[in-house]
Design a protein around this nucleic acid. Sequence first.
RNA 1: GUGCCUAUAGUUUAAUGGUAGAACUUCGCUCUGUGGCAGCGAUAGCAUGGGUUCGAUUCCCAUUAGGCACCCCA
Length: 435
Amino acid sequence: MSDQNKQKMQNLQSPKGMHDILPQEQAWWDKVRKELQYIADHYHFSRIETTLMERAEVFEKTLGETTDVVEKQMFVYKSRSGDRLALRPEATASIVRSYLQHGLAHLGQPLKLFYLGPMFRKEQPQAGRFRQFHQMGFEIIGGDDEPVYDAQIILAMVRLLERLKVKQITVRVNSIGCRICRPNYRKKLIEYYKNPNFKLCKDCRRRLRENPLRLLDCKNPTCQEYKPAAPISLDSLCVYCNKHLKDTLEFLDELKIPYQVDHQLVRGLDYYSRTVFEIFTEATAADGTKFDFALGGGGRYDYLIEMFGGRPAGAVGGALGVERVLEVMKALKSGSAPKEKATVFFIHIGDTAKKKSLALIESLREAGIPMQESLGKDSLGAQLRAANKEGSRLALIFGQKEAFEDAIIIRDLDNSVQETIPLKKVVTEVKKRLK
RNA sequence: GUGCCUAUAGUUUAAUGGUAGAACUUCGCUCUGUGGCAGCGAUAGCAUGGGUUCGAUUCCCAUUAGGCACCCCA
């Protein structure tokens, strides 16, 4: 490779933290897409696909101006006319924007939606974390703030993971209260942590000002010492929020979904209220790997629609990180990549047969049979080798003699048994054998 | 954004201050009338830029990318 070409290749590398999904990977993704569609069909969620970019304000106003996601993780692009467009860091804000823009409330309330698509966050890549990654999620928008919807979202996500053979799923649930009781809790936390005897780390001193709920997340050993005695959200909840959480949990009990109430679970985005949850797996891979990232999370966002200027309405949703789920699936060697489709490999021998081959293959395809061929190779051995490599189940062998007799050889590649059949019967015979 | 580690064919890797050897893969041949095996052969590599040196893939620096952790999050 010339030096010039080397430089070209360097420029051609995919951006940091962004990865191609190569052909070898697609079987896994197909599996995920298939099971997502299955859940959507059976739980009656409709697919929505929103734009990859939004006006930056869509996220800034809803996720919270001081959240990390907005403050430093968004890819923002300034157009010449001065518009600021952001690659979406998550889907919920976009979906609510679309819901209001198109008046989707008319489709019925509440509206159950699902999606799968790429999201973008400018962070340092790490285990299970990328700059371009995929989320798949469910939203129930509009209607009342019924706890049964919270349970339905969690149910759909758990069932999806189960169908993907992710084992030992557990859900951590908490309520962060509503706009009435959350400020109380904030105040209590601040009072508690303002204790002059506490030696808080630098980050926590910042959190105290900007996002007190996050104080509970700190992993610094000194800060952790203060955590057990910290006020818990449950004690600050108003009567309504308390009942909401209790009702939600009761639905989970009835569904026998394993959960833990974690009163110190908080979430990073401003639009959440009441229910918040995260989904983990406690499974251990064959090599002993533990998965200590959340596979997904979500919560209720009853104020988000108002933030956009819509009429107040309840809403709840959740999302799973596709790459994280895939990592677990692969590590557990579970739900192995779906088998390749049974394929029929066409083999020609000799020029006369070859001339007729392409049209013959085409007629088979038209009859609904997925065909593979290697017409560029003339050696019979090479073609059989190719068929073997592709894992084809049947070979159709078409040579000089067969072309002359309007016949074709059908060969079972698993047991090497073959027979010659009239060309007319090839479609029915192939279909019969593929069953 | 911060810290630590890493970078040799498509992949996994070996060796070396005098420009690299293998395995797997790919392709071809043995093998236009029967594949999986085998044999033979071919293609393909020192991330980029700079420095030290007679000479750098090797030593040093920077950049880029990857890994891990923090931050945060799916």
